[in-house]
């Protein structure tokens, strides 16, 4: 059997997840202007919310999944309200925000481990029906991930045409000018944080269906989101999409050459190569 079609399939699947995360991360970064290191932990919380509601409380998945997305959005909003917003109001440096974000990440990860134990959990196998496309095998979950990434990209693109989207662009370009023209900067930031949190929650749930949940998964998800966003070019949705798929491909073809354990190291080598040789990423704004 030829291995390349399956490698392509795996690259597309991994890439779709990274692209989804990178889209959310990038959308958030454009406005808050710092690397929110707690982003992956928010995704993990979304996944675990669904786990709690569907597996432990017995709720239908069609109710639990939206609740998980909502949980991601609300958590991100709450963290922004209680921690990042006061820091920004004080004009704290980005390093202060980064350290606070490291703290938030540690808290969420530990809280998930205390509530749900460090055991590996899976959400459900009902979506694991297999489909074959162009010589590669995909599960239905994986196709949902692909659809989610593409739909999110389209949705973020359409958002730009609305009034809210234009306000977001204005705040991202220049907060001071946006404030002077009468935009409610903090409200717009909240809208961005809610949206980004919802995307994270969705990604976390999909990971739960595809591979499973563990409390430390947030870190890996965050790293992939950041790497994809930077490689693609921070600040552009198209870059995030492109970077996600590129990272997926590099990882999977890298695993083929070396072995599975080196996945994270390969991803980081890609980041460092880009930071050194092309820090602005592939797609320019």
């Amino acid at each position: 059997m030829d291995i390349v079609p399956q490698l392509v399939a795996n690259s597309v699947i991994a890439g779709a997840l990274y692209a989804l995360l990178a889209l959310g991360f990038n959308f958030l970064y454009r406005t808050v202007k710092f690397f929110d290191l707690s982003y992956g932990a928010i995704a993990a919380t979304g996944g675990y919310t669904v786990f709690a509601l569907s597996k432990l409380a017995g709720l239908s998945i069609w109710l639990a999944a939206p609740a998980g997305v909502l949980a991601g959005a609300l958590l991100a909003w709450l963290i922004n309200l209680t921690i990042y917003r006061p820091l920004r109001a004080r004009r704290a440096s980005n390093l202060v925000l980064l350290v606070a974000a490291l703290g938030v990440m540690t808290i969420l990860q530990a809280a998930l481990a205390i509530i749900f134990s460090s055991q590996f959990q899976t959400l459900s196998a009902s979506l694991s029906t297999v489909v074959e496309i162009a010589g590669g095998v995909y599960t239905v979950t994986q196709l949902v991930i692909l659809a989610a990434a593409l739909l999110t990209f389209v949705a973020l693109h359409l958002l730009k045409r609305t009034r809210l989207g234009k306000s977001i662009e204005a705040v991202a370009d220049d907060v001071e000018v946006a404030r002077i023209t009468g935009l409610k900067v903090e409200r717009i930031t909240s809208a961005v944080v809610l949206t980004a949190g919802a995307i994270a929650g969705l990604a976390g749930i999909l990971v739960g269906f595809d591979t499973g949940l563990e409390p430390t998964m947030g870190l890996a998800l965050l790293l992939k989101a950041v790497i994809a966003a930077i490689v693609g070019g921070l600040g552009t949705a198209f870059g995030a999409l492109f970077g996600g798929f590129l990272l997926g491909a590099v990882e999977n073809f890298g695993i083929w050459q070396f072995s599975g354990e080196w996945k994270d190291a390969i991803a980081f080598m890609l980041l460092i190569v880009f930071l050194v040789f092309r820090p602005q990423g592939l797609v320019r704004r």
């Binding site: 921690i83 006061p86 925000l97 606070a100 938030v104 540690t106 530990a110 481990a113 460090s118």
Partner: peptide, 19 residues
């Protein structure tokens, strides 16, 4: 895990109130 939780909390509180 409680240890981790406390360290994380400590970082956040310090950043907020005594950087």
């Amino acid at each position: 895990q409680m240890r981790q939780l406390v360290y994380g909390l400590l970082l956040v509180v310090l950043m907020l109130h005594r950087p």
